[in-house]
Simulated scan of single mutants.
Amino acid sequence: MPPLLPNLAKEFRDATGQNSKGIYLDSKLTWCKHVENITNKATKTLAMCRSTIGRNWGLKPKEWGLREHQKKWRTRKKKSDCRQTKMMLPSIRNKAWNFIQNWTRRDVMYITQILTGHACVNKHLKEMGFADTKACEHCNDPIESIEHILGDCPKYNQIRVNIFGNNIILAKHFWELNLRDLVKFFKKTKRFSYFE
C-alpha cells in the first residue's frame, strides 16, 4: 500500500473508525463497516417499533379511511344533516349497495326516498313549500315523515303487522329492517302511488 493511503485513512477517521460525516471506514477504506452499522441501527429500530406496536402494524389506508368516514358520519355539524339516512343506515359499513345495485329503477327510487326522507310526505313537502302543514292527514300526528309512516301511523298498522310482524316499529330498530321489506311496505301503503 502506498504510504499516502494509510495516512489519509488515519486522518479521515477518529479512534472509533467514524469520520466527521458519520461514515465508517476500515483501514482499507472499504464500506463494509459502514453498511454493517447502518443495518444494525435499522434492525434495532425495527425491533423497538415492533415491540411497541405489536405484530400487525403499519398504515392500512382503507381501514383508516373507513374509520375517519364513520367518525364524520356520526358527528356531522348540523343536527339536521342526513338525520333520516343516519337513522336508517347508522354505519357507513352497510351492505345496502350490494342489495340494491340489481334492483329495478322503480325499487331504487322507493328505497332512496325511504332512506333519505326525501319523499312526498308532508314534512318534506312543507320544507320545500309544497304543503301547508307537516301534520299527518290520517292521524293528526304533528309530523308526517317516513319515520312516522313506517313506525307508528295507525292507518298502516295492519300492513306493518303483515310485513314486519309488529304494529309499531321504533326508529332505533329501522336499520335492522330488510330493504326489500321496506320497499314492499311502502308499495302496500300506496304512499308513492303517484309514480305507478
Rank of each mutant, 00 (worst) to 15 (best):
E63M: 06
W64A: 06
I38K: 10
R50V: 00
V35N: 09
V35E: 06
T39L: 14
K71I: 08
S51G: 11
R50K: 14
G58Y: 03
K41F: 07
R67N: 14
W57P: 01
M48N: 13
H34F: 04
L66T: 00
K28E: 15
N37W: 06
K72T: 03
E63V: 06
E36Y: 11
G58W: 00
W73N: 01
W31C: 01
N40G: 02
K33S: 13
I23E: 04
D26Y: 03
C49I: 15
A42W: 05
K71T: 11
R74A: 04
W73A: 03
I23S: 00
A42Y: 06
N56Y: 09
E63N: 00
T52H: 14
H69N: 10
S27D: 15
L46M: 10
R50M: 02
E36T: 11
N37H: 11
T43A: 10
N40Q: 12
I53Q: 09
Q70F: 05
W73H: 00
T39S: 09
S27H: 10
L66Q: 07
K60D: 11
N56C: 09
H34P: 02
N37T: 13
K33F: 10
G65R: 15
S51N: 10
W57T: 07
E63Y: 06
K33Y: 05
G54N: 07
S27K: 15
H69F: 09
K44D: 03
E36W: 09
Y24T: 07
T52I: 09
I23H: 04
T43S: 10
K71S: 14
K72W: 04
P61A: 08
I53E: 02
E63C: 03
N56K: 14
L29Y: 11
S51H: 04
W64E: 14
I53Y: 13
E36K: 05
N37P: 02
Q70S: 08
V35Q: 14
Y24Q: 01
G54V: 06
G65K: 13
N56F: 09
E68P: 01
K71A: 11
L29M: 14
P61L: 13
S27E: 15
Y24E: 05
E68N: 05
G58N: 04
L25P: 01
R50Y: 01
